[in-house]
Amino acid sequence: MSVTDFKKYAIIVAGGSGSRMQAAMPKQYLPIAGEPVLMHTIRKFADYDAAIDVVVVLPAHEIEAWQGLCAEHGFVLPHQIVAGGDTRFQSVQNGLAALFHADEGVVAVHDGVRPFVDAAILDSAYQMAHAEGSAVVAVSLKDSLRKVTGGKGGKSKAVDRSAFRLVQTPQCFRLPLLRRAYEQEEIPLFTDDASVVERFGHRIHLVEGNYRNIKLTTPEDLVLAEAFLRKLK
């Protein structure tokens, strides 16, 4: 695994509210194995390459709570904290602004509630982005897929699932490319970084993820997370 041949950055976006998790606190702060989810996520990047510059984007009103959790858990892995915006697009813009000192390198944008990304995925994504400009982690569909037309009660038709992929994070890009792409005006199409860069005119390259790299969104996901951690011990 080659981790030292170019500079790496990570923008970890952690703006969830916990509503779908049915939790009283933001989902990035929920504990798994006794530690907030976000700490597990940051540690994955530090374990892969201790020289990565990590920017964590949080809602402004949640920053103090995060700092308190870091003190409580003795969490001292280096990371810069930045206040997010009203949308994910604006939050990534704020994360990029925090890297004002950097001119070159590869930046990964990652969900703060994907704590099971592994070193192999990170290496594949960083290396592909370094070579090609972009690298988006994705997996094949397991289930059958149908296209629905006509709204509720409309017709449905089977489609070839091999033509589709489920997109995960990290999504990695050469830093200058992502900066320029995020200078575009925000539109509803921009649901992730790949859509922003694609709209800018750059080809999106996919790298293989894995099914364990889940985004913790619902209470059932926390059960899976605890099971994954037990298996890793």
Rank of each mutant, 00 (worst) to 15 (best):
I11H: 10
G16S: 03
A24H: 10
A24L: 01
Q28N: 12
L30Q: 02
I32A: 11
E35V: 05
V37K: 00
L38A: 07
H40Q: 10
I42T: 07
A46K: 14
Y48S: 12
A51I: 10
V55I: 14
P59L: 04
A60Q: 02
I63F: 13
W66S: 10
Q67L: 02
G68C: 03
C70P: 05
E72A: 10
E72F: 06
E72C: 12
F75K: 01
L77A: 06
H79I: 05
D86Y: 02
T87Y: 15
R88G: 13
Q90E: 15
L96H: 09
A97V: 14
A98R: 15
F100S: 14
F100H: 09
H101E: 14
D103L: 11
A108T: 07
R114D: 09
P115Q: 01
L122R: 05
D123T: 11
A129E: 00
S134V: 06
A138D: 08
S140Y: 04
L145A: 15
R146K: 15
G153V: 00
A158D: 14
V159A: 04
R161I: 13
A163P: 13
Q168S: 01
P170V: 02
Q171A: 05
Q171N: 12
C172I: 10
F173S: 11
P176Y: 11
E185M: 08
F190L: 01
F190Y: 01
T191M: 03
D193S: 00
V197F: 03
H205M: 03
V207P: 09
E208H: 03
T217I: 06
L224I: 11
E226D: 09
A227S: 15
A227P: 02
F228L: 06
F228Q: 01
L229M: 05
